[in-house]
Design a protein around this nucleic acid. Sequence first.
DNA 1: CATATCGTAACGATTGTAGTTACATAATCA
DNA 2: TGATTATGTAACTACAATCGTTACGATATG
Lengths: 144, 144
Amino acid sequence: MTGNSRFAVSVHVLAYLAYKTGGQVTSAEIASSVSTNPVVIRRLLSALVKARLVIGHKGAGGGFGLASSPSNITLLDIYRAVEPQPDHGLDRFSPNHKCPVGARIETILRTAFFKAQTSMEAELARVSLEDVHQQLKPVCPGKH
Amino acid sequence: MTGNSRFAVSVHVLAYLAYKTGGQVTSAEIASSVSTNPVVIRRLLSALVKARLVIGHKGAGGGFGLASSPSNITLLDIYRAVEPQPDHGLDRFSPNHKCPVGARIETILRTAFFKAQTSMEAELARVSLEDVHQQLKPVCPGKH
DNA sequence: CATATCGTAACGATTGTAGTTACATAATCA
DNA sequence: TGATTATGTAACTACAATCGTTACGATATG
């Protein structure tokens, strides 16, 4: 399985929480919107709680809610909360250091990948959860 | 297995070809520099040939060489030649369209991912194989 | 024709993801 | 207090992708 859907699903989850402001939202309700199993949602929410983007409450009447205003949460915050460190294949890559090219290429690649990654993350940081929420609104005047 | 090392290895391969200008270079020789199996290298080279970055010759005395000058090849060219279309998990993602959030989130995500991807690719396009070659040189005055 | 080399199919081992079941833990409320 | 509701997380399975490897046909050279 290459690539995962954790980031996409997490944005969906947070967008849902932004959409359903006020009360607690259960993992089952979110799972229904995402079309998946509640455990999958709770696993992601576990990471989002650790990253302080979400607050969870156990027990009857429990559920989840945003930890801060949607305008204070960016896609980059979500990305970093749920995506493993991007390695671009570099940790699976151990060239022959006896070869001049093999000895140097790793550092060169690391630098190039870092710049590309940074550029991508800057773009994610430009979009807030509030932006996503706004794009959701026009077409969804009603409630779920 | 998440992520692949195709791009990293491919840059190494092309850097090696840039380094060994002149004659034909065999997949076995490249594999030795990368520390892998010649078939793995030939599989990548197959994609690089299709993308017109490399020219291959069969038979005795055969091998591979760059199809154009290193300054005419960017990391983005290599990236596009060997990486599958990035989906960011979106094709594994089919939310509940009966939910207002589920109905709209896909388009929103697609737009955001496209911008992030474009930004990353622009950064890759800024680096040429000649740049990589230059970074290789100072430390490697000798031959392999 | 003998040799060197590519091109590619096929297979297995490894790994990560997602879905599912199960159950302990914790909070609410009658 | 005890029933109920919900989270937290471990464990297991199914599945897909990558990589290394073997094998072998096709092709070019001399």
